[in-house]
Write a protein that binds this DNA or RNA. Structure first.
Length: 320
DNA sequence: AAGCGGTTCATTGTAACTTC
DNA sequence: GAAGTTACAATGAACCGCTT
């Protein structure tokens, strides 16, 4: 299995959101990638600029990061042509790796817009090198810039940033420095095409947690009524476990529940509510075994929320 | 039945990060 | 500037239980 380390550059509407094409907020103008074998040796590279069809000028903010002129782009092939070159170049047996989680989504959105038929794996798994870099080297949730990671790892800077092929090259070098087991246990799933029907729903099991991606529902309420969505199973023994703290929301998108398995202890359940391209809702549920202390933290968090709301009520009443 | 206090929940807004 | 993420704050509606 090869790695396709992919990086894209894209442009947006130069005249602001009101004039943008709603079907394509971001138009890809460059595809860069390196191909690595299973031992992370480079065995190929891909680099092509793209002639834009939707936006005829570079947005001024984009111009600050990408040093490229419209004249140069206009000499190139269209997205449809470049994309099919790229997909041919990828070959058959590969997995994507990208810096961050946007590139695969924008690639698919552009492919959809330009009517390019291509069947990616389903579910489409990939390595988010940015995410794993932070987890592995810094053990925190922050997202770092590519430049930060390159200098953090003392990788020599031989090329400018924000040129797709060079960013892909750097990302590949970082990928090589990550622990392989760690990598396998933190593989990401692309959400551009969420499950449509129950049979398509995705179940993933990792060392430390498990993940479930539901089919799409018409509303959040409908999603939160679904048995499978709100079910809580121990991620070690897969038995249904009782909820000590029922599902509660901390905002419009995130819900938590706390469970207890007699064999494996406290279990944290989290639901993230997401909106699909077709304006439907689907959920990503992660279940993870946690310590007793972390269990208490969830309880404390819920109680804090209650307390805060209570105080708000009171002060509001006095003011009125 | 009407009113009040308290709770729960969802929505919206803000802020700080990243990608381009 | 626009899209993505996360976290927290503010608001208002709906509901339950109680008293009047």
């Amino acid at each position: 299995m090869n790695y396709i380390v992919l990086d894209l550059e894209w442009n947006q509407c130069p005249d602001g959101k009101v004039k943008e094409n709603k079907e394509l907020p971001f138009e890809i103008i460059e595809i860069g990638a390196v191909k690595l074998d299973s031992n992370y040796n480079k065995i190929g590279e891909f680099s092509e600029l793209i002639k834009p069809c939707v936006y005829n000028a570079i947005h001024y903010k984009t111009r600050e990061v990408i040093k490229i002129s419209m004249e140069e782009l206009n000499k190139c092939c269209t997205f449809s042509q470049v994309c099919s070159h790229f997909l041919d170049w990828c070959g058959k047996d590969y997995i994507f790796a990208t810096w961050g989680n946007m590139d695969l989504m924008e690639l698919q959105r552009n492919m959809k817009y330009f009517g390019i038929e291509y069947q990616f794996d389903y579910p489409l798994k990939y390595y988010d090198v940015q995410k794993i870099f932070s987890m592995f080297f810094e053990a925190i949730k922050v997202r770092r810039t590519l430049e930060y990671a390159v200098s953090f790892l003392n990788i020599s800077i031989d090329h400018e940033f924000h040129k797709a092929i060079y960013d892909a090259e750097y990302t590949g070098l970082i990928l090589k420095l990550l622990d392989e087991n760690y990598l396998l246990n933190n593989i990401s799933v692309d959400y551009f095409n969420p499950p449509k029907e129950k049979k398509d729903e995705i179940y993933l099991k990792y060392n430390e947690y498990s993940k479930y991606i539901s089919r799409q529902f018409n509303s959040k309420e409908e999603a939160m009524l679904d048995k499978e969505v709100i079910s809580t199973k121990c991620n070690y023994c897969n038995k249904n476990v009782k909820r000590r703290i029922k599902w509660f929301s901390i905002n419009a998108k995130v819900y938590y529940a706390l469970c207890y398995c007699n064999e494996h202890g406290f279990i944290k359940c989290k639901i993230r509510m997401k909106k699909s391209e077709s304006d439907k809702y689907f959920v990503i549920k992660t279940i993870k075994g946690i310590s007793e202390e972390e269990g208490f933290q969830i309880q404390a968090r819920r109680d804090e929320l209650r307390k805060k709301r209570k105080i708000k009520r009171k002060s509001k009443k006095y003011n009125n």
